[in-house]
Design a protein around this nucleic acid. Structure first.
Lengths: 127, 127
DNA sequence: CAGTATCCTATCGGATACTG
DNA sequence: CAGTATCCGATAGGATACTG
């Protein structure tokens, strides 16, 4: 059934050799999360993503988009015009993955005051 | 209202200076995801986590646990016995975060065949 | 516009050895 | 048992310049 998992109780991601581990890492990558978040709101061009995702370099954005495209989470469409126009959008699988990540992001944004306040208390106790 | 976001339509995480960006990065970190996943199933000792999470080094596990503890997502309990006994468990906030991450993990594990198959097709088209 | 190429530094992260 | 300390190579990731 499952040749990767070391235990029935635990998921496949805990097995280092399981492909799910790699997929998980690609999806939870620093810039992937933000790219998916952006694309979940609709189609975007390269320059739009670069502008929306504050702090991302061209290099990392291009690299992140490539990985997600190869994984089948993003569709890249090139229009044969001058100047070049390239659009990025989520595939079905990409939007399913993004939906799950957005649950986390929304929770963080909603709970941020509580998280920050609680973190301050913990930090106090550390010193 | 929100001094960080650059746009009403987009979340705070897209702002590089917003604390939510850092929290998101801590939670989606390579080993954090797996640690939270493990702890969502119950209390664990250091050595148990090391064993369950295949491939993690002591160094990275200790580091990951520290970050999550400082963020207030994990509670560390030291028992004054010989040999030492230390238990890790999720806080309320930690279990809320972990719950969201588990949605993603469960989806990946469930959809893995479809993801792998689709990825193979995409890869073919690349060459 | 949508990238690629190059260079460089910082951090990640594994292996090993050691400690209270 | 539960870590810490040290070393080291690999990768992340930013800045800049360049190209079709």
């Amino acid at each position: 059934m499952n040749t990767y998992a070391t235990s029935e109780l635990f998921g496949q991601v805990l097995s280092s050799q399981c492909p799910s581990r790699e997929i998980l890492e690609h999806l939870t990558n620093k810039w992937s999360v933000l790219v998916l978040r952006c694309l979940s709101e609709g189609v975007h061009r390269f320059s739009e993503l670069k502008q929306r995702i504050e702090g991302v370099s061209e290099k990392m954005l291009a690299q992140t988009l490539k990985v997600l495209e190869k994984d089948g989470f993003i569709l890249r469409t090139v229009y044969p015009v001058v100047p070049p126009k390239v659009e990025y959008q989520l595939t079905i699988l990409g939007s399913q993955a993004s939906e799950k990540l957005n649950y986390l992001i929304s929770w963080i944004e909603k709970s941020l005051p509580e998280i920050v306040e609680n973190k301050a208390r913990v930090t106090d106790r550390f010193q």
